[in-house]
């Protein structure tokens, strides 16, 4: 598709300039593997290699997390709109310094293949950027791209929902790729790794798998940016994003809150309002 090629060209141009002028030491972006045709994250520090950068419909990884490895370096990062929300959240959570990063934001993101999150995406333009590539999408265009899909899980009965998730989480091998791929999961020690208390058992029993997914989703409340990286990473094709995406919808409906829209907003659960809803409480 032309759109991806145009974006690629612009990324290469900007990256080359930034590296040549020594504005940044490194550019984090997408590239193609040496032996495969697959897209993979690459880290460019030599301007001559800037032409290795690409953007195409397979650029499914969320790159934002790599920023945490270069906290004290000046780096540039290629950011899809969802990744730019992740970066905004990192800034809001005070994890990275704004002056250290240059965001090459993608506007009018044409979407990622097989990523169901893209069908629900109504952001489509980078929320934070120093340089932009692509063409900004207008509200109408975004509206037109949105697939008017009702959530099929929402319509089920509780028993059916339970069954759906049991069938999903049963397959989980607890490889934790969903966790590692997610920008939110930067904890030095995840709750799964401690044994005092032992929140979830180590074996892949359904009861514990389910528990792991509920607990992780709880950590996504008000932080998930619905990028779909977790789902794309899962080797077992599990609908990992469903719970986190539900949290996004609930946060918006009940608290009018969206993660990563602004780099100085408070996260949902680190804030309150005296008049907050008590939806679901006893009479």
């Amino acid at each position: 598709m032309k759109k991806y090629e145009k974006i690629t060209e612009e990324i290469v141009e900007i990256a080359e300039k930034l590296l040549k002028e020594n504005t940044v030491e490194k550019v984090i972006g997408f590239g193609i593997g040496i032996f495969t045709e697959e897209v993979t994250p690459i880290f460019i520090s030599n301007p001559e290699n800037a032409d290795r950068l690409v953007f195409n419909s397979k650029a499914e990884m969320s790159l934002a997390k790599y920023l945490l490895n270069y906290k004290d370096q000046k780096v540039a990062i290629v950011a899809k709109p969802c990744d730019s929300r992740a970066i905004a959240t990192y800034l809001a959570e005070d994890l990275i310094k704004r002056e250290n990063i240059k965001v090459i934001g993608i506007n009018g993101c044409p979407g990622i293949e097989n990523n169901t999150a893209c069908e629900e995406c109504d952001i489509r333009n980078a929320v934070i950027s120093d340089y932009t590539v692509g063409k900004k999408m207008t509200e109408e265009e975004i509206e037109a791209k949105l697939k008017d899909k009702e959530d099929k899980i929402e319509k089920m009965t509780p028993a059916e929902r339970m069954e759906y998730f049991q069938k999903e989480f049963e397959r989980c091998t607890r490889c934790y790729a969903c966790r590692e791929a997610c920008y939110v999961c930067y904890c030095e020690q995840c709750f799964t790794e401690g044994n005092q208390p032992e929140w979830v058992g180590d074996s892949v029993k359904l009861n514990d798998n389910f528990t792991y997914h509920l607990m992780r989703a709880m950590h996504m409340a008000g932080r998930c940016v619905n990028c779909g990286a977790c789902e794309m990473a899962c080797p077992e094709g599990i609908d990992v994003r469903a719970l986190a995406a539900k949290m996004c919808r609930s946060a918006e409906e009940l608290f009018d809150y969206r993660a990563g829209i602004d780099s100085d907003q408070k996260t949902l659960l680190s804030d309150y309002d005296v008049n907050d809803t008590e939806s679901g409480f006893m009479e």
Binding site: T40, P41, I42, F43, K65, Y66, N69, T173, R174, C175, Y176, A177, R179, E180, A181, G201, D202, S203, A233, P235
Partner: peptide, 25 residues
């Protein structure tokens, strides 16, 4: 390893990786 996420996929799906852990339940 710059881009490695540190998940368990490569070892869990590798046919030769045999590392194990003993745990008590």
């Amino acid at each position: 390893s710059e881009k490695c996420l540190g998940c368990g996929i490569c070892t869990y799906y590798c046919p030769t990786c045999y590392c194990f852990n003993f745990i008590w339940e």
